[in-house]
Amino acid sequence: MASPLEQFTIKPLVEVPGGFDYTNSSLWMTIAVVTATVFLVGGMRKRAMVPGPWQSMAESVYEFIGNMIRDNVGSEGRKFFPLIFTIFMFVLFGNALGLVPGAFTYTSHIIVTFAMALAVFVFVTLVGLAKHGLHFFSFFVPDGAPKFLYPLIIPIEIISYLSRPISLSVRLFANMVAGHTMLKVFAGFVFGLGAATFGIGALAPIAINVLLIGFEFMIAFIQAYVFTILTCLYLNDALHLH
């Protein structure tokens, strides 16, 4: 039987010299871009005053992210709306499309999530530096802490700041890998137990997988939400320091 990790294999579809092959991962990124765009543009095609179900969904995603930025970053976050919205859509569609049977989940690759988290980290740091200049580094000096603790606190603050891209990327990656691996393991049991018990034993793992897939859809949304809201919080830190 195939390993539960086989689903994460990268398969080149179109050879591109220099190691930039167009792979199954690239294909599902393309599908995510197309679906996300069709979802929004298609939903808004009627521009109805009283929205139908599709338009309602498109509008609620827009307002969901709009409110998230307003609540967590404030009015200054307004100009980052398209970027944060794109992050949410890219992660959400990556997670959710990955649950289509036979699909590839690009958010289950640490290099993808880490690249995104690192980009967020660098971008947020640059925003902070651009806004506050060198004063930005006062972020690592907590207010009200006694001076003699500075040699201890400042390195801790710096380490915790530098570990943000790691925790941000590993959280998403690990959730996706764990979920998909679990689904595959139980799918494996369906065949293993089914073959041993003339099909009857397959019912239990099927039932578990039915529950798991629902759970995984929730995780797909929650992890996209967590990734986005943490981006907002980091941005808020950079804009408002403490």
Partner: peptide, 27 residues
């Protein structure tokens, strides 16, 4: 890794442009 990062950047930028210039203004 190089392929993944390259196509991530390409897809993300395309999605960003589509969201920024096409989809979000409509909504």
């Amino acid at each position: 890794f190089p392929s993944q990062i390259f196509w991530l950047i390409v897809s993300f930028l395309i999605l960003f442009l589509l969201m920024w210039k096409v989809a979000l203004p409509r909504v």
